[in-house]
Design a protein around this nucleic acid. Sequence first.
DNA 1: CCGGTTGTTCAGCG
DNA 2: GCGCTGAACAACCG
Length: 248
Amino acid sequence: MPEGPSIIILKELVQPFKGKKILKVEGNSKLDIQRMNGEKILDFKSWGKHFLICFKNFAVRIHFMLFGSYRINEQKDTVPRLRLIFKKGELNFYACSIKFIEENIDEVYDRTSDVMSEEWDPKSAKRKLKKYPEELICDILLNQNIFAGVGNIIKNEVLFRIRLHPENKIENIPRVKLNELIMEARNYSFDFLKWKREFVLKKNWLAHTKKICPRCNIPFIRKHCGKTKRRAFFCVSCQVLYNNNHNI
DNA sequence: CCGGTTGTTCAGCG
DNA sequence: GCGCTGAACAACCG
């Protein structure tokens, strides 16, 4: 469920519930979810992997983590974390993380860091990148303060597309290449969205979970890279690792 | 049936 | 107080 484009799809699917009043609230969340009872949903928003349900005086943040899921107007066999029942229809959220946000959403979230947002700002991303010269690019791409919405699949596909080795240090990557990376983080995310809508996302993976490099026909390296230790699939032949010469 | 994971936070340690 | 590690969460696929 998790990556940014999937949240955009969810936001579209729940549009019929916008402006609707919640008649009953259920779920095994430990939070006071009953405070939503009787409230009218003013809007649905998103930021990166966060799905936001906006009410008059507060908002609910749903994060699907690794295993979270949802059903609209149908149910799974398991107990939902949160179920919102309307006069017509219901929303069910499973195994997700829920938080209440009391502050104004627009003040809490910086949309310039959301790769799916109209307000996404590549220049701002560039400025943030420069603050982490020692970090590896595979970790930085997963940093939600810089690339909100990017997850492990997008990471692997973007790095393969621009031929960049996941273990490159930021400081060693040429400026032009960094710009390319920032552009492709958003660009691939929209391809992800398009392909997910058409149910052909997996079919279009070039690197993620793949065994052979489609460009070189040699085996991919599969390794848990960086501080984040997330799976990386990469080709040592066509994905460049820039050497660090200036510190020797 | 077990191993692994489209993710994040937090406790515990040195 | 820091940086690192591992646990916790908990569902589904191959």
